[in-house]
Design a protein around this nucleic acid. Structure first.
Lengths: 312, 312
DNA sequence: GCCTCATATACTCCCCCTGAGCAAAAGTCG
DNA sequence: CGACTTTTGCTCAGGGGGAGTATATGAGGC
């Protein structure tokens, strides 16, 4: 019998609410997963149209900004142990991953869909003050696991940073992949064998969806610096504090307030609305809106500082 | 009858020779195209293995560094006018584009394959002194075409640069897409209708292959700054001048010699071999080689300056 | 052997970006 | 009215990087 080639679409739909970055998840038999739809070449002219179609139909959430992430085609990436059961008669699924951004985390219509925090799956990616991170010294665990291997140690250095080279927030995928190889995440045992590492970090997702999410997080974080994508996650009007909180939520670390204001105001991506709100118990904050320039997809992003904090 | 879903693999194999960036092309009925292979899920475990397999079989050229670019799935991207002929019974071809780098431009075994300069297809992307660029003021043509439309003018500004925001070499795709929309490239007429723009720039490629090439050029240029990919295009040993010429060929503009040396030497990506060569008629140059760090795929790239030249 | 030329290499200067902190302004709340 | 909170304005210093000058080291002509 013939194995058919199937193209699947996965989407990481991200939003920020109350200073927490969220991702839309779907409850599946094996655990949480990303929304998934099958691409039917008869029905859809482009991937993006198919994506919008199935997400809006499944969850009643509109997709705003959409960007292709990566195409995952490896055989066996869909849980090889399960494939022993389904055997060769299974279709070969190739998955195109997408990143989508929503300015508000509306409640999905679907019963099985829900917004989850990034930190559910990647607690170590949030280095903000006051945020709970139960994970201790992951880099230390990795270095013990590397056991002197120079190539591995260099990869750990670049992924988790050293004294000189700090933590680079966009390397979320590098970090996840190292943890997978070192069996510090549950997927590594599920996919390969039952030998467990010392501690498991974060909540697992089905298939390789946590890897896709890591890809999305890294891509989004990187893009903040050179494209005005942050405004796809903000409402119409916002204070600079709200903007900063959004950025901090995505980057995963705190930044200097006055310098952030300076860089944002000189970038020309926002303008005052000449109104203000006081919601914080302090001096009222001026409201801003995004300028037309911020709507040009090829425009520059925000000049954001690098993380300068403890190496965990 | 049923339309089948086919996954094709396209590769932009790049190399640098004599200070000129090259791409491996294949002669097709409609003109030059990129190497293309069909992905057979029965035979290949991953896209990358399939890619290496068909390229090496077709051209006898080994692929070194390989990186996925983008997956092109739009219906009609394969020359819609031709599809009128083939009609609905044609397979739906989805194409995964790859970028590959070769340290030397070996002669391909295949008769129909040949190395072509980037400038054949993108003469406007080379802003180095002394390089022929027959294309006059493209940005001016585009602005005339935009005819006051603010959104378009902003896109032109970011793509081609202004006095404040200079030319950003990695925006090759943005530039090509604008020129396509303005019908300044031959593909626009081939795909849509016969109405020609004022002047056509660069040589056309079949299907959307020039778009894929533009994607690859932009990606590679951007990556030079944050990954040590340049060494995938260099030989074992090289002088700093050769390294600089390679970088300049890819970036498409000249850079300050002394500052380039400084930044390269402080980056820790090269080390002296304690030998030297004199091939230029001047003082012999020290030979360098890439350090192990440069072989870490996640390591940082070279700190490269921005273009500061005339706005054409 | 000496001069000229070409390239490689070393060093200096300076501006501006950016990190960091101080201080005033403008509200709320008791 | 005073304590407190948050926003906003401003200053200052260090470093990275852009640009230029100067020196080193070879070849080749005469």
């Amino acid at each position: 019998m013939e194995r058919r080639l199937v193209i699947g679409l996965n989407v990481v739909l991200a939003a920020v609410r109350d200073g927490e970055p969220l991702v839309l998840c779907v409850k599946r038999p094996g655990g949480w997963g990303l929304p998934f739809g099958r691409f039917d070449p008869e029905d859809h002219r482009t991937f993006e149209l198919a994506l919008r179609d199935f997400v809006e139909r499944q969850t009643a959430l509109p997709l705003g900004y959409v960007e292709q992430l990566y195409t995952f085609g490896d055989k066996g990436r869909e849980a090889p142990r399960a494939s022993l059961v389904s055997g060769d008669e299974a279709d070969r699924i190739v998955s195109v991953g997408y990143l989508a951004l929503s300015p508000e985390a509306l409640a999905p219509s679907l019963e099985s869909a829900a917004w989850r925090r990034w930190s559910t799956f990647f607690p170590w990616e949030d280095r903000r003050e006051g945020k709970i991170r139960s994970c201790a010294d992951i880099a230390g665990e990795l270095r013990r696991w590397a056991d002197g291997d120079e190539v591995l140690e260099r990869r750990i250095d670049t992924a988790f940073g050293t004294e000189e080279s700090g933590w680079e927030e966009e390397r979320a995928l590098d970090r996840y992949e190292l943890m997978y190889e070192a069996r510090l995440v549950a997927e590594a045992h599920r996919d390969r064998d039952g030998v467990e590492g010392p501690v498991l970090h974060g909540k697992a997702m089905i298939s390789d969806h946590r890897r896709i999410l890591a890809t999305a997080i890294g891509r989004l974080r990187g893009k903040l610096r050179y494209r005005p994508v942050i405004f796809k996650l903000m409402g119409e009007e916002f204070t600079l504090r709200e903007l900063q909180e959004g950025v901090e939520a995505l980057l995963g670390f705190d930044i200097h307030k006055q310098n952030f204001r300076r860089s944002v105001e000189t970038a020309g991506l926002v303008e005052k609305t000449n109104t203000s709100v006081q919601a914080t118990g302090g001096r009222p904050a001026a409201l801003y809106r995004a300028t037309p320039l911020s709507n040009v997809p090829t425009a520059a992003g925000l000049a954001l500082p690098r993380f300068r904090g403890a190496a965990v």
